[in-house]
Amino acid sequence: MSKSHTILYLDGVSVSFDGFRAINNLSLVLDKGEMRAIIGPNGAGKTTMMDIVTGKTRPDEGEVFFDGQIDLTRHDEAEIAMMGIGRKFQKPTVFENHTIEENLMLALKGPRSIFPALFHRRSAAEARQIDDILGIIRLGDKRDQLAANLSHGQKQWLEIGMLLAQDPKLLLVDEPVAGMTDAETEETARLLKEIARDHSVIVVEHDMHFVRELGVKVTCLHEGSVLSEGTLDFVSADERVVEVYLGR
């Protein structure tokens, strides 16, 4: 199988924690520019899959390639982030003691070494980028507030905003609508669809309305490997999927 058109290519990946196989011979391919929704019951290995892609967890076996030819298992988190993979955590993780603006500033694409940061002065271009992102994530009026004071849903959006600031090629978005109202969920779906126009995106989500809203190919994980793949209608009609969701 050719990797050349893929942004992400996982083949035969396995990882165990103390003998427990969290990821079991997982194969998953994402084309350039594609958005994919990943569903699966708790403990299916969705977050662990993202840990492997972003360099947090090393796979015991299997291949993980980014952009067709980069072997991700040879790189660490910071390198992988610099290559263009951004990640939103399941539990929203922002810098609570910094303002919204400062959070975005730290995420903004640019040099990542110490001395430039020490003598950094914000340029007009950076200020404009931050203003744009603040507009997109609807937090413009809170720019000087500490991130700790945001609601759960707003933190999710701030983290998405930080992803935008990073401007990665591939976005891994873990449960973006947890803790959001219906209106916010809809808004998030709209936002992600817009982001997907010029980025590759993987979204993990339990909320089926949201997944339907995205309208993209769905992969269902179970016990660390792919159980079913296809349109949402196809996947949700799949007997095995119904079984793992209801048979618990």
């Binding site: 810098f95 609570e96 940061a117 990073q166």
Partner: peptide, 21 residues
């Protein structure tokens, strides 16, 4: 400085800073 903000960011959420590069 921006580095100082980063220093506190590492204090509060080290892994987050790594995933930002």
């Amino acid at each position: 400085s921006k580095y100082g903000k980063l220093l506190m960011a590492v204090r509060d959420a080290e892994s987050r800073t790594r995933f930002l590069g």
